[in-house]
Design a protein around this nucleic acid. Structure first.
Lengths: 252, 252
DNA sequence: TACGGCAAGTGGTACGACCAATATCGCTTG
DNA sequence: CAAGCGATATTGGTCGTACCACTTGCCGTA
């Protein structure tokens, strides 16, 4: 027999419940499935943690919106431990990004329609106009620009993978990502590279876009290596203390 | 305050529990966290569904092995609906595989150590020796061979992505994947291509490996397109009946 | 010493109760 | 008559208890 969570999913599909629709009450569902509310709640909590349902205390349980990017982010949560345990994990991420960002830019140059191009220009301007003293906004706008390229590539799988890679980078070296924008004179260089990628895509020049993206990623990786190398030493010394803090928090 | 599931994760980290280690009993943990066993179980079930824990009835709850591939497979479950709703989803998957499998083979040729090469040879032989009349075993051995290449590429992220892509393919066109091996004379062709990829990797010839993998994937995609195109028509007509069956199963 | 069975411990499930947040409906009131 | 408001029903969140099924391991017996 299928697991309870799967049976609930099947029920959603069978009833054609759309995002935002209200689920039957827990007591009703429990009766319908002929299980206790406890067991039903365990199953519901699994679906909630997977982002398929949303529970509101006193309000009800609703089908969540399949947020195109959100499922990928939650999907990567199990990898957090792995990403944090291996210090060089971000290098693996960047190695793949060097490959995929090139292909993404190439596809985008070939396939971007007018709506894609409008989004790309908008995203580029957001990066260029981001306040120079706000690394947080810089990082978000930068990621949004690359995600706009991924969207313009018109490949759902590629889009999801790129979203995942950004998430993994965020997890493994979020601090260094912020500090990247503090390097002297780097904003102009990044903007220049972004502009070149943008122009190549808008012009439909796939090969040039590929090369521009490859150069950009190589540049970013080299700078991140500088930052991360110097940060690794300090981090190592503070790890023991962190463990104690975690134990304390777990028992709080 | 952190969620209960997070507090449990923190406890695992703080206690340095390794895969296979036994978790405290539910009743003990509930007392330690000062929550009811019901609430604790809801949190534990979330971690179980995410593959971090394994519960054995009567035996205890154990920390799961970070199976390198398994978390990705469960992580992709939220994408099932998307994979199934879009008929052409598998084309996106194959498009990315054409790119990544080439790079994977290239990396493997450059980085494979003796243990990797032994695994590759073993995996290849498993494919070549799989019974010709057993598509299920064929498909599994084939996937295992490609995963061995991904492992030999020595990039954790790449390995996870490849595992995810195989999972997505399995979800979207598992039937066609099985029927692939029924095409007349295809086994010899596939084995020949696999052999070429293997030889190039063993010889350390990165460029040849890349080309061999690219040719292989292009070939497989063309054959899958033949099968899938002819299958699409029939599937469409039986979809209505399937929904009824799901409703029935959900209430069973 | 080896074997078998019993008891303790564990996860799985169920039922009932209560609390807190929310939604719903009806009543009062302007 | 309509709008605001308060009581009530509904819903998710939590707790406690009890019982079952299974595993483990210990102890007693052969």
């Amino acid at each position: 027999m299928a697991s309870l969570a799967e049976r609930i999913e099947a029920l959603i599909a069978a009833r054609s419940l759309k995002p935002g629709d209200r689920m039957p009450a827990e007591r009703s569902l429990a009766a319908e499935f002929q299980v206790s509310r406890s067991s039903l709640r365990e199953a519901i909590q699994q679906l909630v943690s997977r982002g398929l349902l949303i529970s509101r205390h006193g309000g009800g349980t609703f089908v969540a919106a399949p947020d195109e990017a959100e499922p990928v982010r939650t999907a990567l949560l199990p990898l957090v431990s792995l990403a944090q345990s291996e210090a060089g994990y971000w290098r693996d991420v960047m190695e793949i990004r060097k490959l995929l960002d090139s292909d993404t830019a190439s596809f985008a140059a070939l396939r971007a329609d007018e709506a894609d191009k409008a989004r790309l220009v908008s995203a580029y301007q957001a990066v260029a106009n981001a306040p120079a003293d706000d690394p947080e906004t810089q990082a978000r706008a930068d990621a949004a620009f690359h995600m706009a390229i991924a969207q313009a590539a018109h490949n759902a799988v590629l889009h999801q993978i790129m979203a995942g890679l950004h998430g993994l980078l965020e997890i493994s070296i979020s601090d260094s990502l912020r500090r990247l924008y503090d390097l002297p004179g780097i904003l102009d260089l990044l903007n220049q590279q972004h502009r070149q990628i943008l122009d190549c895509i808008l012009a439909g020049n796939a090969e040039a876009a590929r090369q521009a993206a490859a150069d950009h990623l190589t540049f970013v990786e080299s700078r991140l290596r500088l930052i991360e190398d110097s940060a690794t030493r300090q981090r190592r010394s503070s790890r023991a203390l962190q463990h104690i803090a975690e134990e304390k928090e777990a028992l709080s």
